[in-house]
Design a binder for these strands. Structure first.
Lengths: 101, 101
DNA sequence: TATTCATATGATTGTTTGTTCATATGTTCA
DNA sequence: TGAACATATGAACAAACAATCATATGAATA
């Protein structure tokens, strides 16, 4: 929609750092890794990752803000899933880098 | 050399987070961005990025540890450069993600 | 409508992290 | 060898961050 090419270089680099920062935490990586397989509600994420509902919820808010996950409500429960398959690609790239050599 | 496929999932995710964490800081992103164009010595990096030599040096050590940069000595000065072109690819992927939509 | 279940959120806290300051190491050249 | 220059490093400090605790919001159902 907007012309992002016009963004000043410095600001772009800041955004880039902010973007990668999201992946720089194990909890968030674990969440993304689980969601990569299937959508999941908050309480099941908490169970699966063995963390409190609150901790998961806080991270999900962050991930949502950064547009990495989306959610849908079904009655009382809210299901989270990856926002797009771009995320998987990035995770795979990182994995490949780590695994080589 | 080692078979990285045998690594336990949890440890792999931790390594992945640690890897991305490197890119999650503006200073490091700026350093990598500059080195993408040409190798450079510590003092010029400090000048270019308008930061103290010490701050740059600390970050370079971190980047070196994570195998993202390499260096060579030439007399008194030490030149740093990107360790491989993989880094550029990852930066580009991040940039693309940010710039789209 | 009161209770229960699912999730969100604000405040607090302990930890991590980036920068600074002071100083050490290492190289060159007079 | 000693002065000058380039880089590295340890300790200390402040800011950012993630988890926790307590509580609020919101939906279903008895």
């Amino acid at each position: 929609m907007g012309k992002k090419e016009e963004m000043p270089e410095e600001e772009k680099l800041q955004q880039l750092a902010d973007f990668f920062k999201v992946f720089g935490d194990v909890t968030r990586i674990r969440i993304l890794h689980v969601l990569k397989q299937s959508e999941m509600c908050v309480c099941d994420l908490a169970l699966t990752l063995d963390m409190t509902q609150s901790a998961i919820s806080h991270q999900l808010r962050f991930l949502k803000q950064m547009a990495l996950v989306k959610n849908r409500r079904e009655g009382k429960t809210i299901f989270y899933s990856l926002a797009d398959d771009h995320i998987e690609t990035i995770l795979r790239m990182g994995t490949e880098h780590i695994e080589e050599e």
